[in-house]
Simulated scan of single mutants.
Amino acid sequence: MKNYLLKQLRFVRENTINCVAEMNDEATLFIPDGFNNNINWNIGHIYVVQEKFAFYFIKEKMMMPNNVSKLYTTSTSPSNWGSQALPTINELIRLLKSQIDRIEQSLEFRLKEVIETPFTTSTGLTLSTVEELLSFCIYHEGMHFATIKSYKQIIQNEREKE
């Protein structure tokens, strides 16, 4: 039987994917007034952070295709993207799906493993085990999921005005 934390990670990820699955690229690139980012950035950022938390701290190979890390790491914004090619929403969804599979396959029996150097988040929480890192990812993705849902509502409201 699969660990409850891994079930939660998959549940959260499936909700994130379902939220954006029917969106087109144009909609995911829309930046609402008063905001710095868009849905594309939020999806890519979820991927980059979870890749780091799941694999980097235990010195496993991360899968960061093309410029994914440069585009979506913390403190980046679409305003810095320039004219470089961006992953489509479908490409980002594929990354999100495969990431959860890799986490389950690689880390199911490593959850209690202590990382070499504990990591303290920007909000002051210190994480010391694989389980703690992955648990934080649920919180992190949930925050960005809420943002994505809000952006979708703003996009829908804008379309209704037209």
Rank of each mutant, 00 (worst) to 15 (best):
K61T: 15
L107Q: 07
D25V: 03
E162V: 12
K112W: 00
K70L: 11
E51K: 03
T117V: 14
S79V: 15
E51P: 02
V130L: 04
L111H: 03
T121C: 08
N36P: 06
S150W: 14
E116N: 09
E26Y: 11
P118Y: 02
D33W: 13
K70D: 11
S98I: 10
L134H: 02
Q99T: 04
Y4E: 15
L86S: 01
N66S: 14
E113K: 13
E162S: 11
A146Y: 11
N42F: 02
T147M: 12
I89P: 00
F136R: 01
S77Q: 08
I138V: 13
R94M: 10
Q8W: 06
S150L: 15
Y72W: 11
G34S: 07
V130C: 01
W81F: 11
N66C: 09
L5C: 05
K59W: 00
N38G: 04
V48F: 06
E141V: 02
V68D: 02
K2H: 06
T74W: 13
S106Q: 14
F53R: 03
M64V: 07
N15F: 10
K59P: 01
K2T: 13
K161A: 06
V49G: 05
A146C: 12
M1S: 11
Y72H: 06
K52N: 06
E108T: 10
C137H: 02
R102M: 01
Q153C: 05
W41H: 07
K52L: 12
L111M: 03
E91M: 07
Y151H: 07
T28W: 03
K112S: 13
A85D: 11
N24W: 11
L6C: 05
E158Y: 15
V48T: 09
F57R: 01
T129G: 03
Q153E: 15
V48M: 04
A54F: 02
I155L: 15
T74L: 12
T120D: 06
S122Y: 06
I115S: 00
T120L: 11
I115Y: 00
G34Q: 06
Q84N: 07
T126C: 08
F35Y: 15
R102G: 00
F57P: 00
L29C: 04
L5F: 02
I89V: 09
T73H: 14
T76K: 08
P65H: 12
L125C: 01
K161Q: 14
L125Y: 11
G34E: 07
K7W: 06
Q156C: 08
N24G: 13
K161F: 14
M62C: 04
F53G: 01
T129W: 02
G34N: 10
P32W: 12
K59A: 07
I155M: 12
Y139A: 00
T121R: 06
G124C: 09
I46Y: 00
L133K: 03
N157Q: 15
P78A: 08
L6P: 04
L71K: 02
L6H: 05
H140R: 04
E22T: 14
N24Y: 08
T16F: 04
E91D: 10
G44S: 03
S69E: 08
H144Y: 10
